[in-house]
Protein backbone atom coordinates (compact mmCIF):
# COMPACT_ATOMS: atom_id res chain seq x y z
CA UNK A 1 0.00 0.00 0.00
CA UNK A 2 1.22 3.51 -0.74
CA UNK A 3 2.32 5.50 2.29
CA UNK A 4 0.17 8.34 1.00
CA UNK A 5 -2.85 6.04 0.90
CA UNK A 6 -2.25 4.92 4.49
CA UNK A 7 -2.01 8.57 5.49
CA UNK A 8 -5.16 9.43 3.56
CA UNK A 9 -7.12 6.68 5.30
CA UNK A 10 -5.74 7.63 8.69
CA UNK A 11 -6.74 11.26 8.27
CA UNK A 12 -10.04 10.53 6.61
CA UNK A 13 -11.12 8.67 9.71
CA UNK A 14 -9.56 11.16 12.11
CA UNK A 15 -11.62 13.86 10.42
CA UNK A 16 -14.85 11.87 10.50
CA UNK A 17 -14.31 11.11 14.17
CA UNK A 18 -13.63 14.76 14.86
CA UNK A 19 -16.83 15.89 13.16
CA UNK A 20 -18.82 13.54 15.32
CA UNK A 21 -17.10 14.57 18.52
CA UNK A 22 -17.46 18.27 17.78
CA UNK A 23 -21.16 17.70 17.27
CA UNK A 24 -21.35 15.90 20.62
CA UNK A 25 -19.50 18.63 22.47
CA UNK A 26 -21.71 21.30 20.96
CA UNK A 27 -24.74 19.35 22.00
CA UNK A 28 -23.55 19.08 25.58
CA UNK A 29 -22.56 22.76 25.70
CA UNK A 30 -25.85 23.82 24.21
CA UNK A 31 -27.80 22.06 26.95
CA UNK A 32 -25.89 23.80 29.71
CA UNK A 33 -26.23 27.15 27.95
CA UNK A 34 -29.96 26.62 27.62
CA UNK A 35 -30.57 25.69 31.20
CA UNK A 36 -28.12 28.03 32.91
CA UNK A 37 -27.80 31.25 31.03
CA UNK A 38 -25.43 32.70 33.66
CA UNK A 39 -22.93 29.92 32.95
CA UNK A 40 -23.38 30.05 29.20
CA UNK A 41 -20.36 32.12 28.33
CA UNK A 42 -18.01 29.90 30.34
CA UNK A 43 -19.56 26.84 28.90
CA UNK A 44 -19.12 28.01 25.33
CA UNK A 45 -15.52 28.94 26.10
CA UNK A 46 -14.82 25.46 27.36
CA UNK A 47 -16.48 23.87 24.32
CA UNK A 48 -14.19 25.91 22.09
CA UNK A 49 -11.20 24.99 24.25
CA UNK A 50 -12.08 21.29 24.15
CA UNK A 51 -12.22 21.52 20.37
CA UNK A 52 -8.66 22.87 20.54
CA UNK A 53 -9.42 26.05 18.61
CA UNK A 54 -9.36 28.79 21.25
CA UNK A 55 -6.68 30.86 19.51
CA UNK A 56 -8.45 30.82 16.18
CA UNK A 57 -11.74 31.67 17.85
CA UNK A 58 -10.46 34.61 19.84
CA UNK A 59 -8.72 35.93 16.75
CA UNK A 60 -12.13 36.16 15.16
CA UNK A 61 -14.60 36.89 17.93
CA UNK A 62 -14.46 38.84 21.20
CA UNK A 63 -17.29 37.11 22.96
CA UNK A 64 -18.37 33.55 23.58
CA UNK A 65 -21.95 33.64 22.47
CA UNK A 66 -24.02 30.81 21.07
CA UNK A 67 -24.40 32.12 17.55
CA UNK A 68 -20.68 32.70 17.03
CA UNK A 69 -19.55 29.47 18.64
CA UNK A 70 -22.04 27.41 16.71
CA UNK A 71 -21.04 29.02 13.46
CA UNK A 72 -17.34 28.74 14.18
CA UNK A 73 -17.47 25.08 15.13
CA UNK A 74 -19.88 23.97 12.47
CA UNK A 75 -19.38 26.05 9.37
CA UNK A 76 -16.40 28.35 9.46
CA UNK A 77 -13.88 27.49 6.75
CA UNK A 78 -11.26 29.54 8.60
CA UNK A 79 -11.48 27.00 11.39
CA UNK A 80 -9.67 23.94 10.09
CA UNK A 81 -11.45 21.84 12.72
CA UNK A 82 -14.98 23.03 11.98
CA UNK A 83 -17.35 20.25 11.03
CA UNK A 84 -17.53 21.51 7.47
CA UNK A 85 -13.74 21.78 7.18
CA UNK A 86 -13.17 18.27 8.45
CA UNK A 87 -15.95 16.76 6.36
CA UNK A 88 -14.44 18.38 3.30
CA UNK A 89 -11.04 17.11 4.43
CA UNK A 90 -12.43 13.62 4.98
CA UNK A 91 -13.97 13.55 1.53
CA UNK A 92 -10.84 14.90 -0.15
CA UNK A 93 -8.89 12.15 1.55
CA UNK A 94 -11.52 9.63 0.51
CA UNK A 95 -11.18 10.78 -3.09
CA UNK A 96 -7.44 10.43 -2.81
CA UNK A 97 -7.66 6.88 -1.42
CA UNK A 98 -10.70 5.89 -3.38
CA UNK A 99 -9.01 2.82 -4.78
CA UNK A 100 -8.62 1.55 -1.20
CA UNK A 101 -12.28 1.95 -0.29
CA UNK A 102 -15.27 -0.18 -1.12
CA UNK A 103 -17.97 1.43 -3.17
CA UNK A 104 -20.18 1.50 -0.05
CA UNK A 105 -17.64 3.39 2.04
CA UNK A 106 -16.97 5.87 -0.72
CA UNK A 107 -20.66 6.47 -1.36
CA UNK A 108 -21.42 6.88 2.34
CA UNK A 109 -18.62 9.45 2.59
CA UNK A 110 -19.80 11.25 -0.52
CA UNK A 111 -23.41 11.26 0.75
CA UNK A 112 -22.20 12.61 4.07
CA UNK A 113 -20.46 15.44 2.24
CA UNK A 114 -23.45 16.16 -0.02
CA UNK A 115 -25.87 16.14 2.95
CA UNK A 116 -23.74 18.37 5.14
CA UNK A 117 -22.93 20.70 2.28
CA UNK A 118 -26.64 21.43 2.02
CA UNK A 119 -27.22 21.41 5.75
CA UNK A 120 -24.37 23.77 6.55
CA UNK A 121 -24.85 26.09 3.59
CA UNK A 122 -26.46 28.72 5.83
CA UNK A 123 -26.00 29.74 9.48
CA UNK A 124 -27.65 27.31 11.89
CA UNK A 125 -30.22 28.79 14.23
CA UNK A 126 -30.38 27.52 17.81
CA UNK A 127 -33.79 26.14 17.05
CA UNK A 128 -32.40 23.85 14.37
CA UNK A 129 -29.20 22.96 16.18
CA UNK A 130 -30.22 19.65 17.80
CA UNK A 131 -31.44 18.27 14.51
CA UNK A 132 -28.35 19.41 12.64
CA UNK A 133 -26.07 17.87 15.27
CA UNK A 134 -28.05 14.64 15.05
CA UNK A 135 -27.55 14.53 11.29
CA UNK A 136 -23.81 15.10 11.63
CA UNK A 137 -23.47 12.21 14.07
CA UNK A 138 -25.65 10.02 11.94
CA UNK A 139 -23.74 10.70 8.73
CA UNK A 140 -20.46 9.84 10.39
CA UNK A 141 -22.04 6.65 11.75
CA UNK A 142 -23.16 5.65 8.26
CA UNK A 143 -19.58 5.78 7.00
CA UNK A 144 -18.44 3.73 9.97
CA UNK A 145 -21.18 1.20 9.30
CA UNK A 146 -20.15 0.85 5.67
CA UNK A 147 -16.53 0.43 6.78
CA UNK A 148 -17.41 -2.37 9.18
CA UNK A 149 -19.82 -4.07 6.86
CA UNK A 150 -17.81 -4.13 3.67
CA UNK A 151 -14.06 -3.65 4.12
CA UNK A 152 -11.43 -6.36 4.18
CA UNK A 153 -9.71 -6.69 7.53
CA UNK A 154 -6.27 -5.81 6.24
CA UNK A 155 -3.80 -2.96 6.53
CA UNK A 156 -6.29 -0.58 4.91
CA UNK A 157 -8.74 -1.25 7.71
CA UNK A 158 -6.01 -0.97 10.34
CA UNK A 159 -4.97 2.51 9.24
CA UNK A 160 -8.60 3.65 9.17
CA UNK A 161 -9.10 2.36 12.71
CA UNK A 162 -5.86 3.87 13.96
CA UNK A 163 -7.06 7.26 12.77
CA UNK A 164 -10.41 6.79 14.47
CA UNK A 165 -9.00 5.80 17.85
CA UNK A 166 -6.12 8.25 17.99
CA UNK A 167 -8.57 11.05 17.29
CA UNK A 168 -11.10 9.70 19.73
CA UNK A 169 -8.53 9.33 22.51
CA UNK A 170 -7.41 12.88 21.83
CA UNK A 171 -10.95 14.28 21.85
CA UNK A 172 -12.01 12.50 25.02
CA UNK A 173 -8.82 13.59 26.75
CA UNK A 174 -9.38 17.19 25.70
CA UNK A 175 -12.87 17.21 27.13
CA UNK A 176 -11.39 16.00 30.42
CA UNK A 177 -8.57 18.51 30.16
CA UNK A 178 -10.99 21.41 29.91
CA UNK A 179 -13.37 20.13 32.57
CA UNK A 180 -11.03 18.33 34.94
CA UNK A 181 -11.55 20.86 37.72
CA UNK A 182 -15.23 19.91 37.89
CA UNK A 183 -14.18 16.41 38.74
CA UNK A 184 -11.73 17.31 41.48
CA UNK A 185 -12.82 16.40 45.01
CA UNK A 186 -11.73 19.85 46.15
CA UNK A 187 -14.13 21.62 43.83
CA UNK A 188 -16.02 24.21 45.79
CA UNK A 189 -19.54 23.33 44.78
CA UNK A 190 -19.40 19.62 45.49
CA UNK A 191 -22.87 18.26 45.55
CA UNK A 192 -24.43 21.39 44.20
CA UNK A 193 -26.75 21.27 41.25
CA UNK A 194 -24.13 23.05 39.15
CA UNK A 195 -21.84 20.08 39.55
CA UNK A 196 -24.56 17.71 38.55
CA UNK A 197 -25.15 19.65 35.38
CA UNK A 198 -21.44 19.78 34.64
CA UNK A 199 -20.95 16.09 35.27
CA UNK A 200 -23.90 15.30 33.10
CA UNK A 201 -22.40 17.47 30.40
CA UNK A 202 -19.07 15.65 30.46
CA UNK A 203 -20.82 12.31 30.16
CA UNK A 204 -23.00 13.62 27.39
CA UNK A 205 -19.94 14.85 25.47
CA UNK A 206 -18.81 11.26 25.13
CA UNK A 207 -22.30 9.78 24.74
CA UNK A 208 -21.93 8.05 28.07
CA UNK A 209 -24.65 9.51 30.27
CA UNK A 210 -27.07 6.64 29.89
CA UNK A 211 -24.41 3.98 30.16
CA UNK A 212 -23.11 5.57 33.32
CA UNK A 213 -26.53 5.71 34.93
CA UNK A 214 -27.20 2.18 33.95
CA UNK A 215 -23.95 0.96 35.49
CA UNK A 216 -24.16 3.23 38.55
CA UNK A 217 -27.84 3.53 39.33
CA UNK A 218 -28.64 6.33 41.73
CA UNK A 219 -25.15 7.52 42.48
CA UNK A 220 -23.18 10.10 40.57
CA UNK A 221 -19.84 11.33 41.85
CA UNK A 222 -16.86 12.87 40.12
CA UNK A 223 -14.40 10.11 40.79
CA UNK A 224 -16.57 7.39 39.31
CA UNK A 225 -17.23 9.56 36.27
CA UNK A 226 -13.50 10.07 35.78
CA UNK A 227 -12.90 6.38 36.26
CA UNK A 228 -15.56 5.53 33.74
CA UNK A 229 -14.27 7.86 31.02
CA UNK A 230 -10.57 7.17 31.55
CA UNK A 231 -10.35 3.55 32.56
CA UNK A 232 -13.49 1.63 31.68
CA UNK A 233 -12.66 -0.94 28.99
CA UNK A 234 -16.32 -1.28 28.09
CA UNK A 235 -16.96 2.34 27.18
CA UNK A 236 -16.11 2.81 23.48
CA UNK A 237 -14.98 6.40 23.96
CA UNK A 238 -12.84 5.85 27.05
CA UNK A 239 -9.09 6.32 26.92
CA UNK A 240 -8.53 2.68 27.88
CA UNK A 241 -10.81 1.35 25.19
CA UNK A 242 -9.27 3.61 22.54
CA UNK A 243 -5.76 2.52 23.46
CA UNK A 244 -6.60 -1.15 23.55
CA UNK A 245 -7.81 -0.70 19.97
CA UNK A 246 -4.77 1.30 18.93
CA UNK A 247 -2.45 -1.38 20.27
CA UNK A 248 -4.54 -4.11 18.61
CA UNK A 249 -4.46 -2.43 15.23
CA UNK A 250 -0.76 -1.68 15.46
CA UNK A 251 -0.32 -5.36 16.38
CA UNK A 252 -2.18 -6.47 13.24
CA UNK A 253 0.09 -4.26 11.14
CA UNK A 254 3.15 -5.67 12.88
CA UNK A 255 2.00 -9.22 12.14
CA UNK A 256 0.95 -8.37 8.59
CA UNK A 257 4.19 -6.65 7.61
CA UNK A 258 6.46 -8.66 9.91
CA UNK A 259 7.89 -5.38 11.15
CA UNK A 260 8.04 -4.02 14.69
CA UNK A 261 8.59 -0.28 14.56
CA UNK A 262 9.10 2.61 16.93
CA UNK A 263 5.37 3.29 17.09
CA UNK A 264 4.84 -0.17 18.57
CA UNK A 265 7.37 0.59 21.26
CA UNK A 266 5.60 3.86 22.02
CA UNK A 267 2.02 2.60 22.10
CA UNK A 268 2.47 -0.35 24.43
CA UNK A 269 3.57 1.68 27.49
CA UNK A 270 0.70 4.14 27.08
CA UNK A 271 -1.79 1.28 27.27
CA UNK A 272 0.17 -0.33 30.09
CA UNK A 273 0.02 2.86 32.10
CA UNK A 274 -3.76 2.98 31.74
CA UNK A 275 -3.98 -0.66 32.78
CA UNK A 276 -1.75 -0.14 35.80
CA UNK A 277 -3.58 2.94 37.01
CA UNK A 278 -6.51 3.08 39.36
CA UNK A 279 -8.60 6.19 39.53
CA UNK A 280 -7.26 6.78 43.05
CA UNK A 281 -3.66 6.71 41.83
CA UNK A 282 -4.53 9.08 39.02
CA UNK A 283 -6.08 11.57 41.43
CA UNK A 284 -3.05 11.20 43.71
CA UNK A 285 -0.70 11.91 40.89
CA UNK A 286 -2.88 14.78 39.74
CA UNK A 287 -5.71 14.42 37.23
CA UNK A 288 -4.62 17.37 35.19
CA UNK A 289 -1.00 16.22 34.89
CA UNK A 290 -2.17 12.76 33.96
CA UNK A 291 -4.35 14.07 31.14
CA UNK A 292 -1.78 16.56 29.87
CA UNK A 293 0.81 13.79 29.66
CA UNK A 294 -1.67 11.54 27.90
CA UNK A 295 -2.52 14.14 25.24
CA UNK A 296 1.18 14.75 24.60
CA UNK A 297 1.98 11.01 24.31
CA UNK A 298 -1.00 10.43 22.07
CA UNK A 299 0.09 13.20 19.73
CA UNK A 300 3.64 11.88 19.64
CA UNK A 301 2.36 8.42 18.77
CA UNK A 302 0.38 9.87 15.88
CA UNK A 303 3.51 11.52 14.52
CA UNK A 304 5.49 8.31 14.94
CA UNK A 305 2.92 6.26 13.03
CA UNK A 306 3.00 8.85 10.28
CA UNK A 307 6.77 8.50 10.08
CA UNK A 308 7.01 4.73 10.47
CA UNK A 309 4.51 4.01 7.74
CA UNK A 310 5.79 6.73 5.44
CA UNK A 311 2.61 8.79 5.14
CA UNK A 312 4.68 11.61 3.70
CA UNK A 313 7.88 11.53 1.72
Amino acid sequence: MLGKTAGGLFWMFRFLERSENTARMLDAGFRIALTRSSAAENEWASVVAAAGVTDAYTARYDQYIARNVIDFLLRDTNNSSSVWSVIEGARNNARMVRTALTREVWEATNECWITLKDLLAHPISERDLPEVLGTIRQQSALVRGALHGTMLRNDIFDFARLGTFLERADNTARILDVKYYVLLPSASFVGSSLDNVQWESILRSVSAQRAFRWLNPGEINPMSIAEFIILDQRLPRSLSFSYAKIVDNLGYLEADYGLRLDCHEMAAPILQRLKDSSIASIFDEGLHEFITTFIRDNMALGNQIEQDYRFIG
Binding site: M1, L2, G3, K4, T5, A6, R98, Y309, G313
Partner: peptide, 21 residues
Protein backbone atom coordinates in the same frame (compact mmCIF):
# COMPACT_ATOMS: atom_id res chain seq x y z
CA UNK B 1 -1.85 1.89 -7.43
CA UNK B 2 -2.87 5.49 -8.05
CA UNK B 3 0.25 7.56 -7.51
CA UNK B 4 1.22 11.21 -7.58
CA UNK B 5 4.65 12.61 -8.32
CA UNK B 6 5.54 12.96 -4.65
CA UNK B 7 4.93 9.21 -4.12
CA UNK B 8 7.70 8.37 -6.55
CA UNK B 9 11.43 8.62 -6.73
CA UNK B 10 14.33 7.12 -8.59
CA UNK B 11 16.02 4.29 -6.70
CA UNK B 12 18.68 2.04 -8.25
CA UNK B 13 17.75 2.98 -11.78
CA UNK B 14 14.07 2.24 -11.28
CA UNK B 15 11.02 4.33 -10.51
CA UNK B 16 9.85 3.33 -7.07
CA UNK B 17 6.74 4.22 -5.10
CA UNK B 18 6.74 4.94 -1.40
CA UNK B 19 4.71 2.24 0.33
CA UNK B 20 4.03 1.60 3.97
CA UNK B 21 6.77 -1.03 3.81
Amino acid sequence: ELVEGHDLRVIDGRIAMRTTQ
